[in-house]
């Protein structure tokens, strides 16, 4: 139960403002989700660097000297940017897997939020405005991004229970609704070797996509699959390396509004989230159809 926002820029001149625009959209959705907030931001792709975003409840301790230790472990240069409880580690693209293994050894308590060559995920418990300010989301630049405010239904209010959930390299998912067969799916996925960390229904949705893509499905096919295999109510917004997609369940009770101009495609759980976007008064505004997969690519 939640608020979702998403912004996919077509106009490069807006890229420095992506974080600021998404932050404003996110904060308008506070009423729909006061428990926790998160944002996935895509920026700096194809620069040869891979990114691992990690989270720690004890950042002073865990992040101290982490870049140096990781450099020694993999023998390649490592960049690190710390933002509150999160740190983004940059390593050469071909060293991402090696760095992940080394991190598990060096700091077993760290949670990996995302991995990829452009995706960074930041999420924490608290009001969206507080979460946005602790990570300085408004200063971030990028090509596209997704945000989420959460009103927890059945699973715990924790950092790990916050959205977005990463579904694979440069892939993430946010959800509004409530799934009704996630417990069976969680068991099936575990049998297939895909493990979830929380009792959150959305994480199962994310893990489902990961599983389908691991078995050769495209993201589009995996999203089509959700319409068959996931029961309950959902509006999903997913992010990929170079685009984003939307799908709603066949009943489609949870709200969803989209707007498109020459400059951007935007998604909001409510129109309120979109009102401050440039040119919104003349944008094409519509609601995505039930059981229909939408996709935008760069």
């Amino acid at each position: 139960m939640c608020g979702i926002v998403g912004l996919f820029l077509k106009d490069k001149s807006l890229e420095p403002q992506l974080g600021a625009m998404l932050t404003e959209m996110l904060i308008t959705m506070t009423d729909r989700g006061p428990d926790s907030a998160g944002i996935a931001i895509y920026g700096g792709a194809d620069d040869g660097a891979g990114k691992i975003t990690v989270q720690s409840p004890q950042p002073e301790k865990d992040f101290a000297d982490l870049d140096r230790e990781l450099k020694d472990a993999i023998g390649k240069p490592v960049g690190m940017v710390i933002r509150s409880t999160h740190a983004v580690l940059e390593v050469p693209v071909d060293q991402v897997e090696a760095a992940r293994s080394a991190l598990a050894e060096l700091r077993p308590g760290l949670k990996v939020m995302s991995v990829g060559d452009s995706l960074e995920i930041y999420k924490e418990v608290g009001l969206p405005k507080d979460v946005a300010s602790r990570f300085e989301l408004a200063k971030m630049r990028g090509t596209h991004g997704i945000g989420h405010t959460r009103m927890a239904t059945e699973s715990a209010v924790t950092t790990n229970g916050a959205h977005p959930f990463s579904t694979g390299s440069d892939q993430c998912l946010v959800h509004n609704g409530s799934l009704s067969n996630h417990s069976s799916l969680r068991r099936m996925l575990a049998h297939e070797g895909i493990y979830t960390e929380t009792m959150n229904d959305t994480e199962v949705g994310a893990a489902y996509l990961t599983w389908r893509m691991k078995n050769g499905a495209t993201l589009g096919e995996a999203l089509e699959g959700t319409l068959e295999d996931l029961d309950g109510f959902f509006t999903f917004v997913v992010g990929t390396h170079d685009g984003f997609g939307v799908v709603r369940d066949p009943i489609a009770c949870k709200p969803a509004v989209m707007a498109e101009t020459d400059q951007y495609v935007a998604f909001g759980s409510e129109y309120r989230a979109l009102v401050s976007l440039p040119g919104i008064d003349t944008a094409r505004v519509w609601e995505p159809e039930p059981a229909t997969v939408y996709f935008w690519n760069h």
Partner: peptide, 11 residues
Amino acid sequence: GAVIVDGNASQ
């Protein structure tokens, strides 16, 4: 009474 909307209406 009456309600008239120039644009679209949601669900």
